[in-house]
Computed example of a mutant assay.
Amino acid sequence: MTGLVVPAAARVLSARELRALAEVAERERLGWNANDMSLDEEVLFFLLPYSYEAQPMPLWKCRVIAVSGGLPVEIGEGKRIRFGRLDVSLTTFRRLPVASRKAERQLLHWLAWEAAVASWRSVDEDR
């Protein structure tokens, strides 16, 4: 398989850090779309790079994944996950804190659950 190797580790951000990156994206005329996600302090944000661009500057196009309530999961409480997009310069991206292995695993489980729920809804709607 050929192509650009994207960074393996997801980055994790606070609402304050995401707001600062969004302001830079708007000022630099880079891509940013929050898709109605909340920028509350109780939300944990992950950045997952998916595509490299060299123009207007070297940057990563990233999927923003917002998880309400952070990492702790209370029994019986579901997570609300929202998705957005943000372009981040390579130098800024490298400086962002890397998500712990535990956080990445938990994110994977949440995303798998969201995919399963979406699939079940699709099957129910087809009946």
Rank of each mutant, 00 (worst) to 15 (best):
V5L: 15
L30V: 01
K61M: 09
E23A: 12
G3V: 07
A118D: 13
W110T: 06
R27L: 11
R85D: 09
L108F: 08
N35T: 08
A99W: 02
R127P: 00
A22M: 14
R80N: 07
S68Y: 12
Q55P: 01
I81N: 02
S68N: 15
L111R: 01
A116P: 00
I75T: 13
D36G: 09
W113S: 11
I75Y: 10
W113V: 08
E28R: 04
L4T: 06
A115I: 09
L48M: 15
L18Q: 06
A22L: 13
R105N: 09
E28L: 08
L13N: 06
E17S: 06
E23V: 13
V12Q: 06
K61N: 10
L21Q: 09
L18H: 03
V12P: 00
R94C: 03
R80Y: 07
N35G: 02
A8I: 12
A115D: 11
P56I: 09
T92P: 00
W110I: 10
E74Y: 03
A15W: 02
E114S: 01
Q106K: 05
E41Y: 07
A20S: 15
E42L: 10
P97E: 13
G78W: 10
A116H: 15
A118P: 05
E53L: 04
W60F: 14
V12G: 03
W32S: 14
C62Q: 08
A103T: 01
Y52M: 12
V64W: 00
Y50W: 13
